[in-house]
Design a protein around this nucleic acid. Structure first.
Length: 562
DNA sequence: GTAGGGTTAG
């Protein structure tokens, strides 16, 4: 009887994810009674510690087990996955053979696949898949569902589909994993097709479809589906889909829509959920309502890294570098550890106001105090900071010290500074190097052309131009948009067909005159070189962003945010 | 003892 009582209590602990003291009391009683080492207690205890997230206790128990079987090993692997330690899952798997000579079963395979999915490691994932396929568990549908999910997360929807087709009894986990695979890789038609084909529609499948589309940059489609979901009266019993849809508003920078979704969130009672607050901060910041972002941020009770980082990045993007850095200090005081994204935001903030020393300190601290290996993005921000503020040699040294393959953006940052500061020799050296790479960004061509033209290297200028014309076919014209009320107005550069064209022109001319009175000199360095100065200025004058802002000023109620 | 959904950069 006593045995069943303890088993039941431990299983309750695992299910309800109680505190460690509850499990420890039960554990102590089991030791006292002398049955702690009897089957199945060791594994049940391990599972309880693991499910409640007490990694160290679980590990200690595992190490002290007199006998470890497949269940013990599988529980340990699950524990590591549960604690976001996929590398340890994979590492531990190897000692399974070495220490106890056990071969993986379907439970172990499921854990390994999950770890690969977490890492997004295709190579490892395929290795695990191959071993699974050769094992005697190769028909297990649960492992196959995990494989579908793994391929989905690695961005390989076709591989996912091949596994999906081989599942004989497809349950909801398999279907949603596959819908997610298509949605997150932007295969809209396939995702929606599969979604409609699925034998069920629930909040889960709607969420994977909508969030996948948001992740692949199809925010408008995601929104349409979200509206459809509400029309179908799906109960939003948890806020996951809402965080995705707020993210869509942020990506699309649609403030009015974002506010409406915010109202819905309040109505459904999810406003104080941390995920939601965080994404609302980001949404308001991206939609240029930094005051609203600040308000939401201020109301969050227990801020995590993402809350702080969203606010730091928001401030940085609005040119509020000092505020961003002050936020960082407060964050550290609060005992919150920054992550890689936080440092991108901080370096970005420094770079926009030329805080070189502070930037250097931050970069150093990121590596030395927090042990992060800088990513290409960190390097790009740092190089941008150094070169913008004239420390070109230091910037070049940093670039040369980067231990992996470089992209166009980092060279372009350095080259821009060479051009602006008249470092011709260094500029030519970098331009030659860039020319040997495959350039994708049209503005890099303009930059190259101008650098060569500045050095009177006309042959290279024409070479760049030729590359540009082949490129031009693919280039989409830039546009700007502005919201007023429920409508959005889109403008292209030099647009002359707008009904309010004259009003816009007059306002821009007025503003231009005022700006010049206050010392504005048009910076035409980004316009192609061989035009007359006047023509260059005209091109800047009709920039789509100016048209959009002018239109906003003309139409909006005074004091609204444009 | 195993499987599916959400946030910050780009």
């Amino acid at each position: 009887m006593l045995v069943f009582h303890y088993l039941h209590q431990l299983k309750l602990c695992a299910k309800r994810q109680t505190t460690s003291s509850t499990i420890k009391k039960l554990h102590a009683q089991l030791i006292k009674t002398g049955i702690a080492q009897h089957e199945p207690f060791p594994n049940t205890l391990l599972d309880a510690y693991a499910k409640c997230g007490f990694l160290n206790n679980a590990r200690q128990l595992f190490d002290e087990m007199p006998q470890r079987d497949l269940v013990s090993w599988a529980s340990l692997l699950t524990t590591y996955n549960h604690s976001d330690l996929p590398r340890r899952t994979l590492f531990t798997f190897h000692s399974m053979f070495a220490v106890d000579g056990l071969r993986p079963d379907h439970f172990v395979f499921a854990s390994l696949v999950k770890a690969c999915a977490f890492l997004g490691d295709t190579r490892l994932g395929k290795q695990v898949h191959a071993r699974f396929a050769l094992s005697s568990f190769c028909d297990d549908n649960v492992v196959k569902s995990s494989l579908v999910d793994m391929y989905a997360k690695c961005g390989l929807p076709d591989d996912a589909y091949a596994v999906f087709c081989s599942i004989c009894l497809k349950n909801s986990a398999a279907w949603t994993a596959m819908i997610s695979a298509y949605a997150r890789s932007g295969r809209k038609a396939d995702a929606i097709g599969l979604f409609q084909q699925a034998p069920f529609r629930n909040l889960f499948s709607w969420t994977v479809l909508i969030s996948g589309l948001v992740q692949s940059g199809n925010g408008i489609d995601a929104f349409r589906l979200f509206i459809k979901m509400q029309r179908e009266n799906i109960d939003i019993i948890d806020p996951l889909v809402l965080s995705s849809i707020v993210g869509a508003c942020a990506n699309l920078a649609v403030l009015e829509l974002g506010k409406q979704v915010h109202c819905l969130i309040i109505a459904l009672g999810y406003e104080s959920c941390l995920y939601i607050s965080n994404v609302l901060v980001d949404m308001y910041a991206k939609c240029s309502d930094i005051t609203a972002a600040n308000e939401i941020f201020g109301r969050i009770k227990h801020r995590d890294v993402v809350s702080w980082t969203s606010m730091i990045v928001g401030a940085a993007q609005h040119g509020q570098a000092k505020e961003a850095l002050a936020l960082y200090d407060r964050m550290v005081e609060d005992g919150i550890k920054p992550n890689e994204v936080t440092f991108v935001g901080l370096l970005y903030a420094c770079s926009h106001v030329g805080l070189v020393d502070r930037g250097r300190t931050i970069f150093k601290s990121m590596v030395e105090d927090y042990g992060f290996r800088p990513s290409l993005q960190h390097y790009t921000c740092f190089v941008d900071l150094l070169s913008r503020s004239g420390h070109l040699n230091e910037a070049e040294n940093v670039v040369n010290s980067i231990p992996f393959e470089l992209d166009e953006a980092i060279w372009a940052a350095l080259l821009t500074a060479c051009k602006d500061r008249g470092h011709t020799q260094m500029g030519i050296r970098i331009a030659d190097h860039l020319l040997s790479l495959k350039i994708e960004n049209p503005s890099t061509y303009v930059l190259l052309s101008n650098v060569y033209a500045g050095a009177c290297m006309w042959e290279n200028v024409s070479k760049v131009r030729k590359l540009m014309t082949t490129m031009e076919v693919k280039k989409k014209p830039g546009y700007s948009s502005v919201e007023f009320g429920k409508e959005t107005q889109v403008f292209y550069a030099g647009e002359t067909s707008h009904p309010l064209k004259d009003e816009i022109f007059n306002l821009l001319r007025e503003l231009d005159a005022e700006m010049r009175r206050r010392g504005y000199v048009p910076d035409t360095s980004s316009v192609l070189h061989d035009m007359e100065q006047q023509e260059k200025e005209r091109q800047l004058f009709w920039h789509s962003e100016r048209l959009a802002v002018a239109f906003g000023l003309l139409k909006a109620v005074p004091r609204t945010i444009i």
